[in-house]
Design a protein around this nucleic acid. Structure first.
Lengths: 160, 160
DNA sequence: TATTGTTATACTCTATAACTATA
DNA sequence: TATAGTTATAGAGTATAACAATA
């Protein structure tokens, strides 16, 4: 039965897959981290859209709120954004009257970023909304599990 | 001293930021998950580049390896890829002689995907490399911590 | 000589509409 | 009427090179 054996060894037998086995991918930290990050972004998008903010806009405004006078260079380094891609982002936030740029006190090349009063008011609401979204997702975890998750994630991405 | 008080209340005082305070962002699961996912992808890229594979190519080939006969539709549903974006991806893998498409046994609209012998040989090496990359990153975690991390990440992104 | 911010530009990734063949 | 696969295309995100002003 050569033909039968060849068919048995044939790598391309025409069989249907009833249920997909993703066990291997699900054993990888990278796969799970990406899936979780995409789920969080998916949960974030509608809430932030109410303020006409993308997640990256929220991150930038949050850093400016908590670090008045922060420079573009510092924002780029903290968030992993390339300088050319931050220019338009900050420009849009400035045109919306949420941030303003002031001369840096010691470095005349740089500009310090600050929130305007409307910018601070918007961020107060946005951070409350963000906290609610986090709480909704974290409700699947106990408070201790949420703390553990953040601690382990930081171990993964922080150098040493 | 109205002028002094106004300056004190002035939201845009020209002060420099010596060290960026990202404590708020670092308290968010979403921010940490995204940072960790990007770190894992960054570790993955050079290793997979040796096989001329992107992370998404590796994911697709891995699912085809462990699910011979899987359809494009099933790949899209499992990986969150939109059908139009999978066409070129699979086409490239097919032109490279790594996968081949065979008629689906029961649905003449669909095509079952299979790895060729060179495709399986490549994936044996690629999965070994992936395991090494995972181990290198997971070396910052104890085996128990790595298991806990994956379990908590799955709680975040799995519905209920 | 190096760095900050900027412009222009290219490349990749992701998303939408519409079509065909078949279920 | 709905689904699998496909084409064309648009939009968002990310990348590099080069420049002026300043350190």
């Amino acid at each position: 039965m050569n033909a039968a054996r060849e068919r048995a060894a044939e790598p391309t037998a025409a069989v249907a897959v009833d249920e997909v086995d993703a066990a291997y991918l699900e054993s990888l930290i990278g796969y799970n981290a990406r899936r979780a990050a995409l789920a969080m972004i998916g949960a974030f998008l509608p809430g932030m859209a109410a303020f006409d903010l993308r997640p990256v806009d929220f991150s930038v405004l949050s850093l400016v709120l908590h670090n008045p006078g922060i420079t573009s260079r510092q924002l780029c380094a903290t968030l992993g954004i390339l300088p050319p891609n931050l220019v338009g982002l900050v420009g849009t936030l400035e045109r919306r009257g949420l941030v303003l740029r002031q001369p840096h006190p010691t470095d005349r090349r740089a500009m310090g970023l600050h929130l305007t009063a409307p910018g601070r008011a918007l961020m107060r609401k946005a951070e409350r909304t963000a906290a609610g979204i986090e709480a909704a997702v974290a409700s699947r975890l106990s408070p201790a599990e949420a703390r553990t998750l953040i601690r382990l994630l930081r171990k993964v991405y922080l150098d040493r």
